[in-house]
């Protein structure tokens, strides 16, 4: 496999919904290298989810193109495409009538894996996301905590050993401690499996922590794409500056607290 082919490449991707005049996504160009985490950050309604769903053809673009591993997605069967790309949902999206094991193995079953190899893979995945298989496999999603449900969601997204996964605000609904733990685990798993990831979030701090590069979206357009460092030091416009200011202020504030404490102790 050619390591220089981007895992995902969007070329002047545009989406107009129905009869609305303003496109929800306007001429977006982005690429995600293999093994890279790209975060898409922006306010609510800026077009992040729409962009993400065009990658696995849950939404068909109005114009422009999407390439996955160099192949234009309009040339492949959308169902096969979706089975080969993991997707972690906003609000988890586990099927309430299926057990944890069935949820995790659903794509494998669709792909026609044998029963035994599915069981084996499900056990492996649950262990990977830190849910002992014997204890959790037969539970229903309603019998899990929010954090555990999100772990199952990850396990499901990773089931078919995808090269790339798409994540839509996966940590959005979790309490800070659970979120932090999951973020850490996600980062280490991603590195270990060399996953290419598109992570949609409205939380700039999360993006700074997890992403190799950040794309800032505003009113359907990409305002800037850069590494967290570049974004912090040289935002291209006031909107980006305002967005990136939040984590900066948080860390400054914490630092001043720590500093104040230290100097107070010296006094």
């Amino acid at each position: 496999m050619n390591m220089h082919v981007p895992a995902i490449e969007l070329v002047s991707l545009t989406k107009c919904f129905g009869n609305s005049v303003e496109p929800a996504v306007k001429s977006v160009d982005l690429s995600v290298a293999q093994g890279e985490v790209l975060a898409i950050v922006g306010g609510s309604g800026s077009g992040k989810t729409t962009t993400l769903k065009m990658i696995n053809r849950l939404i068909e673009p109005t114009s422009g193109s999407v390439k996955v591993m160099g192949e234009d997605v309009t040339n492949v069967d959308p169902v096969g495409l979706r089975r080969s790309i993991g997707y972690a949902f906003q609000g988890v999206g586990l099927f309430p009538h299926m057990s944890v094991g069935q949820n995790v193995g659903v794509t494998l079953q669709l792909l026609g894996w044998t029963k035994n190899s599915i069981i084996e893979r499900v056990n492996e995945l649950l262990t990977m996301v830190d849910l002992p298989a014997d204890e959790y496999r037969d539970r229903l999603p309603s019998e899990l905590s929010g954090g555990q449900q999100q772990r199952v969601g990850f396990a499901r997204a990773l089931a078919s050993k995808p090269q790339a996964i798409l994540m839509d605000e996966p940590f959005g609904a979790l309490d800070p401690i659970t979120r932090d733990a999951l973020q850490q685990e996600f980062r280490s798993l991603q590195k270990k499996l060399e996953l290419s990831v598109v992570l949609v979030t409205h939380d700039m701090s999360e993006a700074v922590l997890l992403a190799d590069r950040i794309a800032v979206m505003h009113k359907g357009e990409i305002a800037q794409v850069a590494s967290p460092q570049v974004l912090l030091t040289s935002p291209v416009n006031a909107y980006v500056a305002q967005l990136i200011d939040t984590p900066r202020r948080h860390s400054d504030f914490i630092e001043s607290l720590l500093h104040g404490k230290a100097s107070g102790g010296a006094r």
């Binding site: 979706r82 089975r83 999206g93 659903v106 794509t107 499901r156």
Partner: peptide
């Protein structure tokens, strides 16, 4: 959302 999830898992 369930319908979309079903579609998204393939």
């Amino acid at each position: 959302a369930m319908r979309e999830a079903a579609k998204a898992v393939g």
